[in-house]
């Protein structure tokens, strides 16, 4: 009897399948990749000639927006995309169907997460490229390793948080509301759409969550007034800590079936509790 395909083959295939799936769902494509680009164009048309003051230096707003919206694109490709799409697939029974095949379950999840990482990087790169071509965004190549690492940490964290959200969402009907209720207000106080003060209540509130540190760390990689390599270990560690918490919740609570049918793990735990 022949062997199973190698794990690498399976993972690559799953990532390709999930990326194709994403590209064929117009609403996902629009909200994840197209809407942030529309915002970039719109914001620059509206406020492009203004400047923002960062570290006492004047910075053209059009350069500020590119970094922030690129980071936001990465978040919507991971957190929002996973939070919206996986509960739908679970409600439809697609996850359960895969669970019946010999595909190792971690391979399927790698496909979900891996594809969102691919889409996030593609979206962020497209945004940066637009910034360079249209809005005079300056690329300081010395900071690009930091930009790459920052994006990687952010994408991993928000993918993990997306999976954690999926494990909490009961049904797909509530997923869009929960995703947007958690991410949109936060984006407004996290320097994505508007520059916020460096102190005060909103600043303190936003600083509890991982979005603002991620957005700021990524923006600073494109900020000509920030010196050095662009690495911000403190911010990255804080973002990554959120990712670890999200990952733990996802692993503990993830279910292959809608919540009406308890997960194998949940059911087992429940039965153990009854037996004791």
């Amino acid at each position: 009897m022949s062997d199973y395909p190698s794990n690498l083959t399976l993972v690559v295939r799953q990532i390709r399948y999930q990326v194709t799936y994403f590209m064929r769902v117009p609403v996902a494509l629009f909200f994840t990749l197209i809407l942030p680009i529309v915002m970039l164009v719109l914001f620059n048309a509206l406020f492009g000639d203004n400047t923002v003051t960062i570290n006492g230096e004047e910075w053209p707003v059009r350069q500020f927006y590119t970094g922030g919206l690129a980071a936001y694109t990465a978040v919507s490709a991971t957190y929002s995309n996973i939070g919206n799409m996986v509960p739908i697939r679970r409600d439809e029974g697609i996850l359960k169907r895969w669970r019946s095949t010999p595909l190792p379950t971690w391979t399927y999840l790698s496909g979900v997460i891996g594809s969102s990482v691919v889409i996030a990087f593609t979206g962020a790169l497209a945004m940066i490229a637009m910034g360079v071509v249209l809005y005079d965004l300056q690329i300081d190549w010395a900071k690009m390793p930091a930009a790459f690492v920052t994006l990687l940490v952010g994408v991993a964290t928000f993918a993990a948080l997306g999976m954690a959200l999926v494990s909490i969402i009961k049904s797909a009907s509530s997923s869009a509301a929960l995703v947007n209720a958690t991410i949109l207000p936060l984006a407004f106080i996290s320097d994505v759409f508007v520059v916020t003060e460096d102190e005060g209540f909103l600043h303190n509130l936003a600083s509890i969550f991982p979005l603002k540190p991620f957005v700021n760390a990524f923006q600073n990689c494109f900020n000509p007034f920030v010196d050095g390599s662009g690495f911000e270990p403190g911010k990255l560690a804080f973002v990554a800590a959120w990712g670890v918490v999200g990952g733990v919740i996802a692993v503990k609570r993830f279910s292959w079936e809608p919540s009406g049918a308890p997960s194998r793990r949940g059911r087992r735990a429940q039965e153990a509790a009854v037996e004791n």
């Binding site: 199973y4 029974g93 697609i94 019946s100 095949t101």
Partner: peptide
Amino acid sequence: RDRIGVVLQTSGVENEF
């Protein structure tokens, strides 16, 4: 799971494929 086939009562398929 390699040796069984399952036709579930209600189960979605990827509609976009």
